[in-house]
Amino acid sequence: MIIYSVTISVEETIEQEWVQWMREEHIPEVLATGKFLNCRFSKLVSHKEPGAVNYSAQYTCTSKEELKDYQTNFAPALQQKSMVKYADKMLAFRSELEIIEDLLA
């Protein structure tokens, strides 16, 4: 299993609008590609920048191949759509994590 993690820094002035857009439009569009099993959407509470808030969207997929297919065939258009809508009011950092083991408490 692979986690595709997108960490986003958003200007406070657009936070509520952006969160609503993520919940109602962007995350559903990413999941509609059929490449991910789920998404965990979180707000970072341990790191604060003046004038900005940070969020994390972590999408789970079954393989590196599925992620590669998403990155090649779907991500460019979805990322472009984000940039057109929010231009210089957000900054995203993407990383890939391989799940070694799921542990239950």
Rank of each mutant, 00 (worst) to 15 (best):
H47T: 15
L78R: 00
S56R: 13
S82I: 07
T72R: 06
S82C: 10
Q79R: 08
S63L: 00
Q20K: 10
E15L: 09
A87I: 06
L67I: 06
K35H: 07
Y4S: 08
I99S: 05
F36V: 05
D102A: 14
A105W: 12
S5W: 12
P50Y: 12
Y59L: 02
S56E: 13
K81I: 01
L31E: 05
V45A: 15
E101Q: 15
T7D: 11
Y59P: 05
S9T: 11
L103F: 13
E12D: 12
M1V: 12
V30W: 01
L31I: 04
N73C: 03
F36Q: 02
M22S: 01
V19P: 03
K48E: 15
E11F: 13
R40L: 13
V30Q: 05
V84E: 06
L37A: 11
V84K: 11
A77V: 04
Q71R: 02
K43T: 11
K81D: 09
E65W: 09
V19N: 01
W18C: 02
Y70N: 00
I100Y: 14
W18Q: 04
V10E: 02
E98K: 14
T13D: 10
K81A: 09
S46A: 15
R94G: 05
T33D: 04
V10M: 05
M22P: 00
P50G: 12
E65K: 11
Y4N: 09
K68C: 05
L67H: 00
L67S: 01
V19Y: 01
L104E: 15
L37T: 08
V45W: 14
Y86R: 01
Y4I: 08
S56I: 12
E24Q: 08
A32Y: 12
S56H: 10
K89V: 02
I100V: 14
Q16C: 02
L67G: 00
V53H: 11
M1H: 13
A32L: 08
L67W: 03
A52I: 11
S95I: 06
E65M: 06
E11Y: 13
M22G: 02
V6H: 08
T60K: 10
S9A: 13
C39E: 11
E49W: 11
E11D: 11
I14Y: 06
L91W: 02
K64L: 10
V10I: 10
V84L: 12
S56P: 02
Y70I: 00
S42W: 10
V10Q: 00
I100S: 15
I14M: 07
R40T: 15
C39I: 01
I100W: 14
P28Q: 00
E25L: 07
M90N: 06
K68Y: 03
H26I: 04
L91C: 07
P76L: 01
F41N: 03
P50H: 14
S56W: 05
P76G: 00
L44A: 15
R23S: 05
I2D: 09
A57G: 04
E12F: 08
N38H: 10
A77E: 03
S9R: 13
F74K: 04
I14E: 06
E49S: 14
D88H: 09
